[in-house]
Design a protein around this nucleic acid. Structure first.
Lengths: 151, 151
DNA sequence: TATTGTTATACTCTATAACTATA
DNA sequence: TATAGTTATAGAGTATAACAATA
């Protein structure tokens, strides 16, 4: 049962992380951003609050310097802004500007629309089942990986 | 319903394509291979027949030169072998050697074992549902992307 | 002395361009 | 002249190492 699934799961993952899909959604926002930059924007947008650089890195599952670089680029374009963290002078909080928030929103709308198109022909029951099972799979996988990292 | 799912799907994709999971499975095979090399091996293994370089590239969704490079490396390590294609003198068929086949097998066993561990606590019905829905999602996504590429 | 973030550098994966050989 | 593959080069994404400032 699994053996046929694995190649398709690989293809799906590729489409999401590296493929044409995010590229198209980025184009549709009208902003010429690279994918890591968009990921930073989305991370801030779904956090719905300013985050520290380290926190963004954790959520993106990358290291700090990677985030620093993209935050710097995004700040130059006026999409995010670094502000002081009142609780710790070493840290800086990164927050979305108005246009940064708009860009994240436009990207999400585009992507959701696309996915909705893919699922349009599905029975409602299957759509719900997919969301439930896929969500659980993602959570369980993350939990198992975290457990492995305790070694 | 989708909005909570997307970040988790991203995390899952990352774990599969770039994360610690494939890395661990590679270590477990005892071979010091890079990930693209393993993907070539897996592609040949699940094809269960020699493939041309171009065909491998199509199935991996990458370009030709990428495959050439990794086939060359794998050949030096004795894991694959280039043989003549009787039907076309320009093309070469790439086939797994005995140890290449063993390596792919060991990798798959390890990965399947790991996934089985993640799904161990799931009700059988949910496991089947996941395989069915995820398979369909992968297929439908690929079909929609192909349709988009007709522009 | 530990932690937050930054700068500088290097590595992995993949693409594009230019070329060779056969069709 | 088109196609299969190769070689050489370039680019995107991310990591590691060394450092600065604050805790």
């Amino acid at each position: 049962m699994l053996s046929g699934l694995l190649p398709r799961l690989n293809r799906l993952s590729r489409a999401i992380t590296r493929g044409r899909l995010p590229e198209r959604a980025i184009e549709a926002t009208g902003l010429s951003l690279d994918r890591p930059g968009v990921t930073v924007l989305l991370t801030l947008h779904s956090a719905d609050a300013p985050l520290r650089v380290g926190e963004i890195a954790d959520r993106m599952q990358v290291v700090g310097p990677h985030v620093t670089r993209h935050v710097t680029a995004l700040e130059k374009r006026g999409l995010v802004r670094r502000v002081a963290d009142p609780s710790d002078q070493r840290a800086r909080l990164v927050e979305l500007t108005g246009s940064g928030s708009e860009a994240a929103d436009a990207y999400k709308r585009n992507l959701f629309g696309w996915i909705a198109g893919v699922l349009a022909d599905w029975p409602a029951q299957d759509r719900e089942g997919l969301a439930r099972l896929l969500g659980r799979l993602a959570d369980d996988t993350a939990a198992h990986l975290d457990a492995l990292d305790q070694d």
